[in-house]
Design a protein around this nucleic acid. Structure first.
Lengths: 121, 121
DNA sequence: GAGATATTCAACCTAGAGGTTGAACAACGA
DNA sequence: TCGTTGTTCAACCTCTAGGTTGAATATCTC
């Protein structure tokens, strides 16, 4: 996996188990045992998923006696959302495609309007 | 990587090269050679990245003589965006955490309000 | 038909993801 | 102090992501 924050966040979201964990945490803090309960896999596997989420900044963890309560952190979701929003409304209908194509043929390059390049995270 | 569509989309977005390709395609259609030009890696590697994007539904490809023009498809971004939006505004400030904690201690379970579970894609 | 250009396929390599099991660590309760 | 509970660490396995190189395929041009 790439080292940049955005890649870590998207990679963390690319697993259904981890998305389910985040969904659960949206309802409130939970311990590792509570989070692992719905899944068939071992506790250690869930612990690894939590580590992935933590490294992506999507959760934070406290200490309460022998429990390590997990809490959803929404900051990185903001960054991911921002990235997606920049591209999801790009026009891709027929007319625009045609116009772009004509422009490309005519100028031999690409000069049409669109969102800027990815900003470094 | 998991088989579901959402996982494929997030996994596709989890690579900076692929995000750069999408950013480029937001400015208009492009061929494989054009897309590969900014990168140090081989053409074949870029071709593989395009296949990942295509399987995630994020691009579509045409046929124009020996060229295979690629085009951004924003539909899957919509799905990814929807997923994130459901969680990114969850309240995680101090007071809410405290309230949730009190509730958890009192009831021995979790009953606070939050977005529902992930909908199957 | 022969060569040039654009792209993909196939085989291979390495590193890491995601799972397992067993042991270790941390904190509680008796 | 001892057993129990919650969690993590370490070693291992398998599969795949992401890269390489070399050959094959598709289409244009001459």
């Amino acid at each position: 996996m790439a080292e940049d924050g955005l890649s870590k966040v998207f990679a963390a979201l690319a697993d259904p188990t981890r998305r389910a964990i985040l969904a659960r945490l949206a309802r409130g803090e939970a311990t590792v045992n509570e989070l692992a309960e719905p899944f068939e896999m071992s506790l250690q596997a869930v612990s690894k998923h939590l580590k992935v989420l933590e490294r992506a900044g999507l959760i934070s963890r406290g200490r309460d006696a022998q429990w390590r309560p997990c809490r959803l952190e929404t900051g990185p979701l903001e960054g991911a959302s921002t990235w997606i929003e920049r591209y999801k409304d790009v026009q891709t209908d027929r007319m625009d495609r045609l116009a772009a194509e004509i422009d490309r043929i005519r100028t031999g390059t690409d000069r049409d309007q669109a969102p800027g390049p990815e900003r470094g995270q």
